[in-house]
Design a protein around this nucleic acid. Structure first.
Lengths: 183, 183
DNA sequence: CGTAGCGGAGAACGAACGTTCTCCCGTAGT
DNA sequence: ACTACGGGAGAACGTTCGTTCTCCGCTACG
């Protein structure tokens, strides 16, 4: 097994375990078992657990925003792209193993003790908000709609995570529609 | 020092440390140092750390909802009580040491591994949503406004916690106003 | 005055965990 | 064929931490 696939497998296992059970409750040994990558190899790919955590959040960030954008971009009408965000959230919430927003969860777990993790969380949320801003602008809507839409999306993620229901996405989509139309 | 005050001091220290740095990063020994309550006493008051965590969340829940209700009830006009919720959030976000919602953070840290903690978080959020529901009903507004208001508040808490800014409260209050008026 | 018992300080214990080390095997190059 | 080396399995190490134990002093009651 070459380094690239070992890295992929390590990150696959890290994502599944860290996301599903929390970062601190997963040991390096369990990661080895789940990935099939030996401890020696894990440590030469990631010199410490914290770097594996960072790489996990980084890769997930790319994938998450990629999946969202791919779904939204399928919608040609710029005005419909905003509800499409909430459609995608709803699909995401309904996925097997959904357990809330990985960054919000990581922030709760490590935000106070790891500056690197805290900064990655802020960067991810900044990127998501910036993406919403481009959608708002693309639809010709006033820029100050971005904040409320972002808050609705964040509230939906948190609530869906805690309650285990996909319903907050629909509530948020409906509230977003009313906000957009009240202009 | 009698048992009641020892218990208070233990909970005071637990609240400050657990909320400020996360639960898992605070050891029982540090708790002893911060509270001045010996380990022996701590363990006879709370047979295990998890019970201290539960008691911390429980007491904070009572206090948090009490402070919110006290602030909101000062407003006699039922219609103005809804913005008053966001006013209070804004004050809270601006407090020294504010670090997001204790329950959202605890859920991120322990939600996957501790059913007791997860259930306390759900109960707290349920209670907060129910409180919003009574405010909406008291103002004579349609009940389906509760969900969106709740999501805005949750989004504001998460975002204020991550960014360290109180601004999301104002954004949420303004969005709430528009939602209420669009009816 | 004697003693039983509660409480404090902190050592001790055992488990978990991040990280490193040892030992051995398979392979590739000379 | 020999050897140098990358890699795997897992033991080992050192630390942290939750929890319990030991030892000692104080106080209150007979």
């Amino acid at each position: 097994m070459d380094s690239a696939t070992a890295r992929e497998r390590a990150l696959d296992a890290a994502e599944e375990l860290f996301y599903g059970r929390g970062i601190q409750s997963v040991g390096m040994d369990e990661l080895r078992g789940a990935s099939g990558v030996s401890l020696k190899r894990l440590y030469q790919l990631f010199p410490a657990k914290e770097q594996l955590v960072e790489a996990y959040l980084e890769r997930r960030d790319e994938r998450w925003r990629g999946r969202l954008a791919a779904h939204v971009d399928r919608e040609p009408d710029p005005a419909r792209r905003i509800p499409a965000v909430f459609d995608w959230l709803e699909e995401w919430f309904a996925e097997d193993g959904f357990r809330g927003c990985a960054w919000i969860n990581s922030y709760g777990e490590l935000g106070a003790t790891s500056d690197r993790v805290a900064e990655q969380v802020r960067a991810h949320k900044r990127a998501f908000r910036d993406y919403l801003r481009t959608l708002v602008a693309g639809a010709g809507l006033p820029a100050d709609l971005t904040g409320p839409l972002f808050l609705l999306a964040e509230g939906a993620m948190v609530t869906a995570g805690i309650t285990g229901s996909a319903r907050p996405a629909a509530e948020a989509r409906e509230a977003a529609r009313r906000l957009v139309e009240s202009r």
